[in-house]
């Protein structure tokens, strides 16, 4: 991989824009979808946008802290996904659906 050329010919702002776009796509998904599993996927997408941003900053600055942060985000995302899916399965058992729109029982 011709890595030098990336840093010299590509500005960091492109990565910022790319991850912003990714994050916003994820946000759009969170706002529009109602299937809990898809929502979870959209959140994963947002997390990945953040990861990309961290890696880009970290590489451009030559500082390893950002990459380590990404590592921890991945770790935590795995744990979170496990718990989240468990919750979704639990709900599916009760209501036979994963539609979060059904959950408007509690209103005030």
């Amino acid at each position: 991989m011709n890595t030098d050329s990336i840093f010299s010919s590509l500005d960091i702002s492109h990565y910022i824009y790319l991850s912003s776009v990714l994050f916003c796509i994820g946000l759009f998904g969170v706002l529009t979808r109602r299937n809990a599993i898809v929502l979870l996927m959209c959140i994963e997408l947002m997390l990945n946008a953040v990861n990309l941003l961290f890696v880009a900053f970290s590489s451009y600055m030559g500082d390893s802290a950002g990459q380590l942060f990404v590592f921890f985000i991945m770790v935590v995302a795995a744990a979170e996904a496990a718990v989240g899916l468990a919750i979704i399965v639990m709900i599916y058992r009760n209501v036979r659906s994963t539609d979060v729109g059904l959950f408007d029982k509690l209103k005030g």
Binding site: V50, F54, G84, I87, V100, F103, K105
Partner: peptide, 24 residues
């Protein structure tokens, strides 16, 4: 159930937002 799923989704969503802030 509803509490759990709402708390979970909002919690992880806000974590993502928080992390974006950290990244910037």
């Amino acid at each position: 159930n509803e509490a759990a799923v709402k708390y979970f989704l909002l919690g992880s969503f806000s974590t993502a937002v928080f992390l974006l802030g950290c990244a910037f």
